[in-house]
Design a protein around this nucleic acid. Structure first.
Lengths: 218, 218
DNA sequence: ATTCAAATGATCCGGTTAGTACATTTCACT
DNA sequence: AGTGAAATGTACTAACCGGATCATTTGAAT
């Protein structure tokens, strides 16, 4: 049982083969979409062969679905490292928003997989219970912050955690998903590090504004 | 010269043929993506033939690029109907945001074309000067509102119209683009008319909050 | 050392699809 | 009514690509 790296003669290693295929598949599907991706191309970037793809994943759609799940799993895994319970509500929320913004930026392949899935009306995602569970858990984390903020009187009443999640996602997702068209039209300045930091701060404040008690006018 | 509807024997009508092809192309590309779209399918939904597609548009990519332009043109055309100059700045901005939100909802094919173009890193859009001009004009409209608001002292200083446009777009675009995955995971409630009205109001307020002079805290 | 299922290699195939070749018709202008 | 270019119809093809077929090897248990 040698490491997964070297392969002389050949040694069986089913799990490594599956993971190898999945990693390449995520990358290819994210880059080229479902019908734009060639199974042969995936195979060629793999340490194994096309034969193995069909052996383990049945067909192209099967592979795509598993790749989609893999992308979600990896990203939600990253989110789990975030501990917010010890922070006061406003700071917890601010940290969550800033983290989400950064995390999306760092995982463009995930974003692209979701874009592609949206193009396909989420029909493959709908078939995967795994993914639904992951995301519902993410909402619960947000709901906890909302309740704490309301209990302490720093958040207004009647906040809908789902709407809030929608708003946070809208900013963070769009920032990555529409970067190509946006910068093709308006230039890339908004996506350089300095501008992104400003933008992140702005949306943190915008979100905090949404949950804050009304006070302004004019 | 009869109308474009009936076609007995056959009568030449180059412009109508081109428009017919383009309309179908937008619909097909928006639904299935670039590589997911079949030229034969487009042809079959047309009153003309595949031969004509290649005759007028050269190849699949040429047709795609023209379809992308057509989608942009149609949407920007709709936006031009909006007259904001007679409104006070806050109301003008509020109206612009609400309109953008609705307008995006009403043009899902356009949204999907942009999504697809983003998947392709905007490489076809980048080749089209037409589109860039259209959008830069849209920003200018926003800049005018900002300047008026600042002159009247109701907006804070240092607003970047481009960032503002980014924020408005993020909400309005995401609302359509990610509806499939979002509702697959969290249910469709947020996308029914009542909830959408609430959401729209929320984001109008969020945007107004961004441009307003600081006053709140806690 | 045999056995047998799991894992892998090597090669092939049939349908699909973008694009083309060739022929024909329309129509504006003489 | 003739001419020629633009417009359209019909049929074909070459390449590509998802998937299948058949054979071989590995490795764990007997």
């Amino acid at each position: 049982m040698n490491t997964t790296s070297e392969r002389r003669g050949w040694t069986q290693n089913p799990d490594a083969v599956k993971q190898d295929i999945l990693a390449v598949a995520v990358s290819e599907f994210a880059s080229n979409g479902l019908s734009g991706t060639r199974v042969d191309t995936i195979a060629s970037r793999t340490r194994t062969s096309k034969r193995m793809i069909y052996y383990y994943f049945g067909d192209k759609l099967g592979l795509y679905t598993r790749a989609l799940e893999a992308a979600y799993l990896k990203v939600r895994e990253g989110e789990a490292t975030l501990d917010l319970d010890h922070l006061p509500p406003r700071e917890a929320l601010a940290k969550l928003v800033a983290f989400t913004f950064d995390h999306h930026r760092e995982n463009p392949d995930f974003i692209r997989m979701v874009m592609i899935e949206n193009i396909h009306n989420a029909e493959h995602l709908a078939a995967s219970e795994v993914i639904r569970d992951l995301n519902v858990a993410a909402i619960e984390k947000l709901a906890v912050i909302c309740r704490r903020g309301q209990a302490q009187g720093v958040f207004r009443a009647g906040i809908d955690p789902l709407s809030l999640h929608w708003q946070i996602s809208a900013f963070s997702f769009f920032n990555v998903s529409n970067r190509p068209t946006f910068s093709a039209i308006f230039g890339a300045a908004l996506f350089e590090d300095a501008a992104q930091t400003t933008l992140r701060q702005q949306i943190v404040e915008a979100i905090l504004g949404i949950v804050s008690k009304p006070a302004t006018e004019g």
